[in-house]
Computed example of a mutant assay.
Amino acid sequence: MPVDIATPRNLVKRRKNAGYAAVCAVGFDADPGVFRLGPAENIEALLPQLQPGRWERLHFAHVLWTPGLAVARTLVLAAERFLANVHLGQHWYRASRETLNSVLLAEAGSLRSAVWSHAELLAFLKGQADREADRFAAGVI
C-alpha cells in the first residue's frame, strides 16, 4: 500500500530546517514487492526525478525518517547489504515491506539512532509548531 507523503507547507519548511532525511522505498503498482531504495532530504522532489525513467506510475512503498542524511545513507547501505541476494539491479530490490522495515529498524537500533514513520514525524513537527504558537500567544518568546 502506498505511503501518503502529503505534508502541510509549514511542516515541510520546519522538517527541512531541522535537517531530517528519509529512507525511501519507491515502488510501482504492477509488482508490489519490488522497490528502489535510497536516501532523500527532499522527498517531494524524489518521485518526479525518478518517474521519467519508468513507464509505470511510481509511489512511496515505505518511508522512514532519520535525524539526518548521514544516518539515512547508513541505513540504506545496511539494507542494501542485507538485501544483496534479492538485488534486481540499479538499486531495485524484491522483498516484503515487513522485511525492509525490520532491517532498517535493526540497523537504526545498532546506530542508537531515532527513526520515525511519516505519520510519527508529522505529529512530532505539528506538536512542536503548536507549542511554539502557544508560547508566542502567551508572550513568551
Rank of each mutant, 00 (worst) to 15 (best):
C24E: 07
E132S: 07
D130L: 12
V23H: 12
L111E: 05
T66D: 05
L69D: 07
K13M: 11
A40D: 12
E80F: 04
Q49V: 09
M1I: 03
N17C: 06
G68V: 06
F28W: 15
F82I: 00
Q51C: 12
W116A: 11
F82H: 07
Q49E: 05
T66A: 12
S117Q: 11
L64F: 01
S117C: 08
G127A: 06
D4F: 05
E44M: 04
R36C: 06
A45Y: 03
A30L: 10
F82P: 00
D29S: 12
Y93P: 08
P48H: 06
A79P: 15
R15Y: 04
I141N: 02
V12G: 00
D130N: 10
A18S: 10
V86C: 13
V26K: 00
P8F: 07
A108M: 00
W92E: 03
L83E: 05
V140D: 04
S96R: 15
L122A: 00
A138E: 08
F28K: 12
L50K: 01
E44W: 06
V63P: 12
M1Y: 00
V76G: 05
F60P: 00
A123W: 02
F28V: 02
A106N: 08
S102D: 06
L104P: 14
E56F: 13
P8N: 03
N101P: 03
H87F: 10
M1D: 08
F136P: 00
E41G: 15
G38V: 05
E41R: 13
R81V: 14
R94D: 02
L111M: 13
V12R: 15
A78R: 15
T66K: 12
M1G: 15
W65V: 11
G33P: 00
A137W: 09
C24L: 15
R97D: 10
H59F: 13
G53W: 02
Q128Y: 07
T74G: 10
L37T: 09
A79L: 06
A30G: 06
A45E: 10
Q49N: 08
V71I: 13
G33A: 04
R131M: 08
P39G: 04
A78W: 08
N10D: 15
F35R: 08
V140H: 04
V86K: 05
A137P: 09
V115G: 03
P2S: 05
L58N: 01
N85D: 14
